[in-house]
Design a binder for these strands. Structure first.
Lengths: 150, 150
DNA sequence: GTCTCTGCAAAACTTTTGCAGTGTG
DNA sequence: CACACTGCAAAAGTTTTGCAGAGAC
């Protein structure tokens, strides 16, 4: 009963069919994301890789690859920096708290939007605006614990 | 019964107290935003200013100033570019449709989240996470008319 | 005259691209 | 060998900063 990501078998096999290798650097990036319960900036991921001498550019390339493969998701781009997290297949559908002061992004478990409401909204938008909704994102802005108590 | 923004009297007076002048370039930027029903990128605003020889840097500075004054709001930062719109005091509270393919952002009138649900959510987040919610943002991702029919 | 604002140039940052070299099947 | 991957350097794109001159009150 291992995590789908840390499982040494399923993911590499899944990728092999596409000619993609789950190399040590990529594995390391995924490990960093698995250990985190919130979106991480590319620079933060790179920093957490520590002494493994992995180039920042490789982290960028890895993030784009993993996004295309659906393993990872670009969860936030505020303050001019991309923040990634494991895709919802692994984390479950959820939303985020965003601190307006320091830019910290935290996970908020679960989805609070009713399925009925979302269905109605999607249908309406599709009919009235010819816009096909594929996903949604709810963010709560405010002050995090640190900034709020300061 | 003029719009609060196009009204030549209230806004300048409001700013005067802070030592801020509503100059021609700033007025021009506001006019562009008023004429638009969706968030605009800084480069787009600059382009719409056309032959008025206003520097791109001045547009950036104007946007930051207007944001601080609460007249304008940073509505979206996807694809690495900031997009601004008039603040909700003028446009009313609303959300956005974001095309995942071309990055187009459209307005979606009104708020679909129930007040009761939001209140409960805010209280819960405040209690459990010491996070003080001040606002929220709902985005629907998908394909716009152009990209969806292609 | 003072203080704000603007334009131009340059800098800072994040992200992408080119290319040569490494490694693996 | 072929092909994917990585690192280094350079480029590209957006946003910010410095400074001197122009403009408003």
């Amino acid at each position: 009963m291992t995590s789908p990501v840390t499982d040494t078998k399923t993911i590499p096999d899944l990728l092999a069919g596409k000619g993609v290798r789950l190399t040590a650097p990529r594995r390391a990036v995924l490990d960093v994301l698995v250990a985190q319960a919130a979106p991480l900036a590319v620079a933060e991921i790179h920093a957490k890789l520590g002494n493994r001498r992995i180039n920042l550019v490789s982290v960028y390339r890895t993030m784009r690859l993993l996004s295309q493969l659906g393993l990872v998701r670009l969860a936030d781009e505020s303050k001019g920096t991309q923040r990634f997290e494991l895709s919802e297949a692994f984390t479950g559908h959820h939303h985020h708290l965003v601190c307006e002061q320091c830019g910290l992004v935290e996970d908020l478990e679960g989805c609070w939007l009713g399925v009925n409401m979302l269905d109605a909204l999607n249908r309406r938008v599709r009919r009235a605006r010819q816009f096909r909704v594929t996903s949604h994102d709810l963010k709560l802005f405010g002050l995090c614990q640190r900034c709020g108590s300061a």
